[in-house]
């Protein structure tokens, strides 16, 4: 979602206008969209949400080429599950690995948390870490390349 910083800028005047309309009309909810963004103003919880519209492929298309080259890499270590990636055992500890580190087969590269369980992801072979493709706390999909070990 790096491409929509401008589109998610909150238009305070617009929301004030919509909120006033809500009060005036007694409606429960107003949704207004323009271009690739939409605003929903709801009563009585008075929650306001601004979100990028599901632009379906825009983000996916942009991300696809980079991910694919990494995924095709013979040294790519892929995620065996959906979850959240952690590059260190806790926030105060140093990362398990960083670019340039030499690892032995079986060394922990990172953790994937799924269902409150931390699963260690280990190096399938000895080598040098040439790329770390995820940041601490990133959500990862099944099969997503995490680290490249050459």
């Amino acid at each position: 979602m790096a491409d929509d910083s401008s589109s998610t800028k909150v238009d305070a005047d617009l929301i004030r206008t919509l909120a006033a309309l809500l009060d005036e009309t007694g409606l429960g909810e107003i949704e207004y969209s323009e271009g690739d963004w939409h605003v929903r103003v709801a009563a009585p919880q008075a929650t306001t949400t601004v979100s990028a519209a599901p632009t379906i492929t825009a983000a996916a298309l942009a991300a696809a080429p980079a991910a694919e080259t990494a995924a095709d890499h013979p040294g790519a270590v892929r995620s065996p599950m959906v979850g959240v990636a952690y590059t260190a055992s806790d926030p105060d500890s140093p990362s398990f690995v960083k670019v340039g580190d030499t690892v032995a087969e079986g060394d922990t590269l990172l953790l994937i948390e799924a269902m409150k369980v931390f699963n260690p992801i280990t190096a399938p072979k000895a080598g040098t870490v040439t790329r770390v493709l995820v940041a601490n706390g990133d959500p990862v999909e099944y099969g997503e390349p995490l680290v490249i070990v050459e």
């Binding site: 599901p54 379906i56 492929t57 996916a60 599950m81 959906v82 999909e141 099944y142 099969g143 997503e144």
Partner: peptide, 12 residues
């Protein structure tokens, strides 16, 4: 997957 706002690959 193409029509959804987001998608997550969950397995083989």
């Amino acid at each position: 997957v193409r029509l959804a706002g987001e998608s997550v690959c969950i397995g083989p």
